[in-house]
Amino acid sequence: MDEAIIEVRGLSNRFGDNSVHEDLDLDLYRGEILGVVGGSGTGKSVLLRSIVGLNRPSGGEVRLFGQNLLALPVEERSRLEQRLGVLFQGGALFSSLTVRENVALPLIEHAGLSRDDAEELAEVKLALSGLAPHAGDLYPASLSGGMIKRASLARSLAMDPDVLFLDEPTAGLDPIGASDFDQLLLTLRNALGLTVFMVTHDLDSLWTVCDRIAVLSQKRVLVADAPERVAEYPDDWIQSYFKGPRGRAAHRAVKSGSVNNSAVQRS
């Protein structure tokens, strides 16, 4: 589990006078689930966008599978991008396509499947993400928040990506839906060997599924380590984050919970 498939080196992002990242380093190792936390405005989403190539950083470099995405020719870049799946915060489903067509689109465009094959496979991905069978025919406008997340997850999984980027996947889900999502993520990671980069504020998610947690603060990654060690890190923000009433409750719940998934994974 020591092979870094994403290396962020000396990343800087400035918007006008406002500097979001300065000299930020981060590694993502194969097969792990990395949780990224930080206060509002610490640039979690900007970091995600920089890694997947939607945001050209002001300085530094991001290497995916050893290659700099932004320096590649269009063809190779597209091929590399197919190995990434991104779940955007708002879902970002194409509103003019049905849910099934949303998932089938990359399969038709990139994998060269026929429409029927692609839609059949899309149906499987939708089922895999826990959507009800009739949901495939709906348009995104008529979906609930939880269904949008699931449909969007199905689309990000369409191409069987190596790395999955999730931007606040459990935000806006009810607790049951959120813990289902956590379980789903673990199952998929174990089954598909996914590497997951997850921006989240959900403390339960952090304790349940993350192998490592990276804390963004003071324009860089303050610490990136196993959850227990991060929780002990001597920093005011981290202490109030993990040792606040919500943080303690979430930790207790996981400790006493019947399934400790990180333990299952490591065994």
Binding site: E123, V124, A127, L128, P133, D137, N190, A191
Partner: peptide
């Protein structure tokens, strides 16, 4: 084991009756 997990997850997902297309 990871193959097993994948196949189990998928069989569970696909075991449900697909929606009848109109």
């Amino acid at each position: 084991p990871e193959r097993k997990a994948l196949l189990e997850t998928l069989t569970r997902a696909m075991g449900r009756e697909p929606a009848a297309r109109q």
